Amino acid sequence: MADKLNRTRRWVLLGGGAAIAVGFAIREYRLIPQDYAGGQISVAEAHELALSGDILLVDIRTPREWRATGIGDGAQPLDMRREDFEQALTRLTNGDRGAPVALICARGVRSARLSNRLTEAGFTHIIDVPEGMLGSAAGPGWVRAGLPVQYNTGEAG
């Protein structure tokens, strides 16, 4: 009986360990940005180009994230989870799918994935800001770079 109990405990521990390992693997996968063959710019460039009107800078994070860190000065908040995201983005570009649009998220993961998706959907000048608001391997990010933020969290589009 004790031997059977020990075997059961071993299987439970192995199963639990495997579940934890799978959980970490999924988490790490979600934190790795997809390759994006299109353009990329730094947060400083994104800020400068957005203020000059040379790009439309779109903060694709969630309203909760906008409230937590603010929205980069010159950026338009547009939650990427919206079902009508592409239509709202098309409205922001006045129907011009060739307009230069830079996407920023927290750490560059979602912006790279969405850049690929929008390019496949026919937007021809999507630019990724891989540093994001909070920094990544690409750089310190908007907040740590000390770039200005706004706390108007009303969504565009």
Rank of each mutant, 00 (worst) to 15 (best):
R61T: 03
M1C: 07
G98Y: 14
G95F: 03
C105T: 10
G17Y: 14
G146C: 04
V58F: 00
S52R: 09
E155S: 12
D54P: 03
D79R: 01
V12M: 05
E65L: 12
A46S: 14
D73F: 02
G157Q: 01
A137G: 09
R67A: 14
I104Y: 03
A37G: 13
W142K: 02
R117V: 15
A145V: 03
P140Y: 04
A145H: 03
L51E: 02
M80F: 11
G15W: 14
E83I: 05
D54Q: 11
E120C: 06
R30W: 09
R67G: 11
D73E: 13
N116D: 12
V109E: 08
G95Y: 05
L89P: 00
T90S: 06
Y36V: 10
P130Q: 07
V12K: 03
G38C: 06
A102I: 11
T90P: 00
L78T: 02
P148V: 08
I71Y: 00
I55F: 05
G17W: 13
G141R: 02
L31Y: 10
L147K: 10
R117S: 15
M80D: 01
P140T: 08
A156F: 02
Q87V: 04
T69R: 05
S136H: 13
G132T: 14
I71S: 00
A156D: 07
W11Y: 15
G23S: 15
D84T: 04
I32W: 07
N94M: 08
G74C: 04
E86R: 06
H125N: 15
G135W: 12
I26W: 09
N94E: 15
Q150D: 10
I127W: 02
V58N: 00
L49G: 01
Y36I: 13
R10L: 05
G154D: 13
R113F: 09
L89N: 00
R30Q: 09
D73S: 11
T124V: 09
